[in-house]
Computed example of a mutant assay.
Amino acid sequence: MVSKNKYEDLWSHHNYIVYVVEGRKIWHTAHGAYDLREGSCVFVRKGACIVEQFFDTEFCFFLFFIPDAFICETLNAKSTPIRSTVRKHEPVMPLANSIAIHTFFQSMLPYVEEECQPDPALLELKFKELILTVADNTANQELLAYFCSLLEEPQSVSLQLIMEANYCYNLKLEEFAALCARSLSGFKRDFKSIYQTTPGKWLLEKRLTHAQHLLANRGKTVGETSFECGFENATHFSRAFRQRFGIAPAFVRQRLLV
């Protein structure tokens, strides 16, 4: 059985940047795991993930939530346009270590340690400074690719990217709609137009296919698979899996172990 204390679902309808001052956590996505320790800095795309926690040390970090619209506004005001040599971007993107990025977070310490709240105008400037700092580093090609997609890609492509990156998390349709910057009715309408099916049917098929892969190739338990594929509980998952594939998920795992 997966411990909800050790593993925690986390989702945000805004992108965010994490800079680790002390401690360790692992961000798990459908595309891989990202082990964050002291000095790690990553950009996490809006959406969901599973965070693995370690309780033998404190976890101290900076966390900046940054909406797509704010990123685009900042980049559009940039004197030189951004470019990227790659077109791919994962849900979690490590940022290149540089003196500029470490200096930026050191400059934030006085605002954290002081009791008075900084002026909102000053915070807005600091957020813009952070975006421009990472955008000016050509080593951040994957992040630059994501920034380019925000500036160039139509909303239909954005919806597909969000769904493909987040289908395995236990999010409600209202939360998927929020991630896609749409009302629930607008999300359902646009989804049907793109995929020719309903979000519920598409999500169930994607989750079950992913579950089959985890059981057959990764040796995951039924409980772990249920949790990592976005099902409410193992009973619901087992019933849906048997209906789809005609076999209990436990038997798929047993075949791998034989």
Rank of each mutant, 00 (worst) to 15 (best):
R253V: 10
E232D: 13
Q212L: 15
Q243C: 06
R253H: 10
E232A: 14
L215K: 03
R239I: 15
H236Q: 15
T225S: 01
E228A: 09
A234H: 04
L257Y: 03
F237V: 01
I247N: 00
R255L: 15
F237Y: 02
N233I: 10
T235F: 12
H210G: 09
F241M: 07
T225M: 01
T225W: 00
K220S: 09
R255P: 07
F245L: 14
V252R: 08
T225A: 05
R242H: 09
H213S: 09
R239G: 00
L208V: 04
R218Q: 10
S226Q: 01
L215T: 02
Q212D: 11
T235Y: 11
T225F: 00
F231L: 05
S238R: 04
A234V: 04
R239D: 09
E228M: 11
L256H: 06
Q243T: 12
E232Q: 14
A211L: 04
Q212S: 11
Q212N: 14
L256C: 06
S226G: 04
N217S: 08
F241Y: 11
E232H: 13
R244V: 11
H236V: 15
F237T: 04
I247C: 08
H210W: 11
R218C: 08
R253D: 09
E224H: 06
T221G: 04
I247H: 00
G223T: 07
H236F: 12
A234K: 07
L208C: 05
R239M: 12
V252I: 15
F245V: 12
H236M: 14
P249G: 06
A240K: 14
E228G: 01
H210D: 11
A216E: 07
Q212H: 14
K220Y: 11
G223M: 08
H236N: 13
G246C: 06
L214I: 03
P249V: 03
L256A: 11
R244I: 11
S226T: 02
G230V: 08
A250R: 15
A216H: 01
E228Y: 13
P249I: 01
R244T: 13
T221E: 02
L208P: 00
G246F: 05
G223F: 08
V222N: 01
H213A: 08
R218M: 07
F231R: 03
Q243A: 14
A240S: 14
L215H: 01
F227K: 03
N233V: 11
L215Q: 06
K220T: 10
G246N: 05
F245R: 11
G230F: 08
Q254T: 14
K220Q: 09
F227S: 05
N217T: 10
N233T: 09
A211W: 04
R218S: 07
L257G: 06
H213N: 09
H213R: 11
F241L: 10
T221V: 03
Q212C: 12
G246K: 05
T221F: 00
I247S: 01
E232L: 15
F227Y: 10
L214Y: 01
N233G: 09
R244M: 14
T221S: 10
A234G: 06
L208T: 06
F231I: 03
E232Y: 12
R253N: 11
G219T: 06
L214H: 03
E224N: 07
A250H: 13
C229L: 04
E232P: 07
F231G: 01
E228I: 09
L256Y: 08
G246E: 04
H236D: 13
